[in-house]
């Protein structure tokens, strides 16, 4: 069986400054994988390069054995919440329906079926009552759940989510975790840019530690170690609870917690 995601020797540069250096990542199907690393490590860039949104200097990306353009319909993308204008004149159900546009293709308009799918997805993220709400009136957590509902209706096989836990309330965090497990239960693969090292072992099966280069990538139990974290974060680490770490050794936490993360990296 092909791996769900296979990134080989991926290099992305901005002029002569490498943003990603020769990154190799392989993820089998049906896992939840976190991408972690300090600010400016290239996490978002890696995701955008995989999705063909950023030009690459070298390397290749295979999704279930084929190139991204051949697999478009099987890939779901949840961009950073802050990447869109929430004052855009539209309502919640309409945004969720956008997730069906890829399946509709050019020219075909969404109809009853698409709206039904959108309403069902909104139910799954607990936003059913907000369907007709203007998107400008949503809280940050609600915006994130709308984006997740939009990803659900895409009905993809592999999902890429850029910081879905960024600045959300506890209800939304629980909803996201439940949803991730549900997606995995359905045999889907989910790759998540993540900031909170505390919850990596709890939420994810696999982890990729990134800091321009790929420091380590594999099952959380094998690669989420003190040594690898030290290599990823350098000196910018502090000590926290032991049980957040796979090996049970001294746990580490980034000095740059989720709250300071911007969309720049």
């Amino acid at each position: 069986m092909n791996p769900a995601l296979e990134v080989t020797d991926l290099t992305v540069a901005y002029h002569d400054k490498p943003v990603l250096w020769d990154v190799d990542v392989t993820a089998p199907a049906g896992i939840l994988m976190a991408i972690v690393g300090p600010n400016g490590a290239g996490k978002t860039t890696l995701m955008k390069a995989i999705l063909g949104l950023t030009p690459v200097a070298a390397g290749s990306v295979r999704i279930d054995g084929k190139s991204y353009t051949q697999q478009r319909q099987r890939v779901g993308y949840v961009p950073q919440r802050g990447s869109v204008d929430w004052d855009f004149p539209t309502n919640v159900v309409d945004v969720v329906t956008m997730g069906r546009y890829g399946a509709l293709g050019w020219f075909r308009r969404p109809g009853r079926r698409e709206v039904d799918l959108a309403m069902h997805a909104l139910e799954q993220v607990g936003m059913h009552d907000f369907a007709q709400r203007q998107i400008s009136q949503l809280s940050g957590g609600q915006q994130q759940r709308v984006f997740l509902a939009r990803a659900i209706v895409q009905d993809a096989d592999i999902y890429f989510m850029d910081e879905p836990f960024q600045g959300v309330d506890a209800t939304t965090e629980r909803t996201i975790v439940t949803l991730l497990k549900q997606l995995r239960g359905d045999g889907k693969t989910v790759v998540v840019v993540h900031h909170d090292l505390q919850t990596v072992a709890e939420y994810f099966d696999w982890v990729t530690l990134l800091n321009v280069q790929c420091i380590a990538s594999g099952p959380v139990g094998q690669v989420f170690t003190e040594e690898n974290l030290r290599r990823t974060y350098g000196g910018r680490i502090a000590f926290v609870e032991r049980d957040a770490l796979a090996t049970g050794g001294m746990a580490l936490r980034s000095f740059a917690p989720a709250a300071t993360a911007g969309g720049a990296d």
Partner: peptide, 12 residues
């Protein structure tokens, strides 16, 4: 207009 990133990944 709303989400150019998603539009691009969906091939639009």
């Amino acid at each position: 207009t709303f989400d150019a990133g998603l539009a691009a990944t969906l091939g639009f």
